[in-house]
Amino acid sequence: MPMSHSPDAELVARLQAGDQLAYAQLVEENAGEIYRLALRMMGNETDAEDVLQETFLSAFRSIDRFEARSSLSTWLYRIASNAALMRLRRKEPEQVSVDEPLERDDGEMIPRQFFDFCCLPEDDLLRDEARAEMMRAVEELPATLRSVFVLRDIEGLSTEETAEALDLSISAVKSRLMRARLKLREQLSVYFSQGPLISETE
């Protein structure tokens, strides 16, 4: 898409001219989403805040090289995902292999849980404790699957945008999303099959 047709074109021009108000606008419009992505990726507020700050510092430094091949927000997601994955790689190197095989057919995809939690009351499915468990399950995903799942299913990016943000092929996004969803389904099946846990301390 030629830059002049991009809805970001005017903002990009102002950013590249060093307009402080444009910088503030970029932050105001995107910081919330970037923080959420960082929080979901890192699993704690301290690391999420570091990733957030690093993302915008890095974006400001490299705005001159922004070529409008993607939208500004996808570009920011890309910087943030990289920052998060770099940090995770330092923290849990065994989990974030750079050249992980795209698909391993070692049976990890085969469903093992057959508890039909669809029929549980919505109140049980949507309670705070269930949601906390759902987020814990996301944190337990390997980082390469987590990044795809968070962008695609939690942040609602399209397959194409997710591929752009993570520098992956469309088929790699689809395959990782599938594996992430299957793993989460297994985890939720185990959790919900134990029944609504009435807090014993009350």
Binding site: D116, C118, M134, R181
Partner: peptide, 13 residues
């Protein structure tokens, strides 16, 4: 069904 439900539950968070 549970796969579809899993995706929709995450979207409701």
């Amino acid at each position: 069904n549970t796969f579809t439900k899993t995706v929709s539950l995450y979207r409701q968070i």
